[in-house]
């Protein structure tokens, strides 16, 4: 039983990261109605920027907001330069653009910083939270930061005019234009915010998984899984989905011995597909009925 609780709590801690990633996925999905495969690589690149700044001696707590700001600008720029010109192209062409971005970021990071793994220090310190605690200081800190960011985001979307405009632009772009919302600017903002959140997730998880160009791939997959599990139309669902995925992943890795660590990801994904078969729009998602 102790093992069980321990694993659930540990899963909760990694789940926070997945929740962050899932949220970033949902935000871009809301803005453009596609899943961005390059999201993880963008986050990885941001994390390298953070590592570089730290290596140059910048203090950790200055690096955090700075990297998020740079990532925000970067996301906005990608939307303007790469995505906007093909706005009206078919979905699959967008998917190919994401694949291209994936290749670019992955290869550029490897070229600039090399493929050897780099340790990233934790701002919260090493070791267990208290002697005998199931989670470490870093995991606890990570969880707290994630929660704070998530509540800020929730408040942003719920209570600010920009947040409302972004939601409106995503629900009904044409109607949003007719009330004077600058829809294309909102899409750009969505990209910017999503890449800033991705950067945060990357910086938080880097001390746990070590920094290397491929570090975000599986995290992004868990993020996707969380987002889809919770329902792509619901930011809250995405967060919940992220936590569930984290816990399921940990429990599967612990209790299904033959399969062990290697197949953790597959097991998690298949569980999610199983859930989707029962609830095709995700746990908190809304299925919009289509008229013929």
């Amino acid at each position: 039983m102790d093992l069980f609780i321990h694993q659930v709590i540990a899963g909760f801690a990694t789940g926070g990261i997945y929740a962050c990633m899932a949220l970033a996925v949902v935000m871009i999905y809301q803005a453009i109605h596609h899943l961005n495969f390059a999201q993880g690589e963008m986050a990885m690149f941001s994390t390298y920027l953070g590592w570089q700044l730290l290596a140059w001696g910048a203090p950790y707590w200055a690096v955090f907001p700075l990297v998020m700001a740079i990532s925000f600008a970067g996301g906005l720029a990608i939307e303007r330069i790469v995505v906007r010109p093909i706005e009206n192209a078919p979905v699959l062409s967008h998917v190919v653009i994401f694949i291209a971005l994936f290749a670019i970021f992955n290869s550029a990071a490897g070229f600039i910083w090399g493929f050897t793994i780099k340790p990233v220090p934790s701002p919260f310190g090493e070791g267990a939270l208290y002697p005998g605690a199931p989670i470490g200081k870093h995991q606890a800190g990570m969880l707290v930061v994630t929660m704070i960011v998530l509540s800020l985001l929730w408040a942003f979307f719920r209570f600010t005019r920009v947040g409302l405009s972004m939601r409106a632009a995503s629900v009904n772009p044409e109607s949003a234009r007719l009330v004077g919302v600058r829809v294309s600017l909102m899409n750009g903002l969505g990209w910017g915010m999503a890449s800033a959140i991705g950067a945060l997730a990357g910086l938080l998880i880097a001390p746990v998984v070590f920094l290397e160009p491929n570090m975000m791939l599986s995290i992004l997959l868990y993020g996707f899984a969380g987002a889809v599990l919770g329902g792509l139309s619901s930011p809250l669902g995405a967060v919940l989905g992220g936590f569930i995925v984290g816990i399921v992943e940990n429990l599967a890795g612990t209790y299904i011995p033959v399969i062990g660590g290697e197949l953790k990801l597959s097991i998690a994904l298949f569980l999610i597909v199983a859930v989707l078969l029962v609830k095709p729009a995700g746990l908190l998602g809304r299925r919009t009925v289509q008229r013929v």
């Binding site: 971005l101 290749a103 992955n106 290869s107 550029a108 490897g110 070229f111």
Partner: peptide, 8 residues
């Protein structure tokens, strides 16, 4: 070195 980026 940048083959992936060029491909992209």
């Amino acid at each position: 070195g940048l083959a992936g980026a060029c491909y992209g």
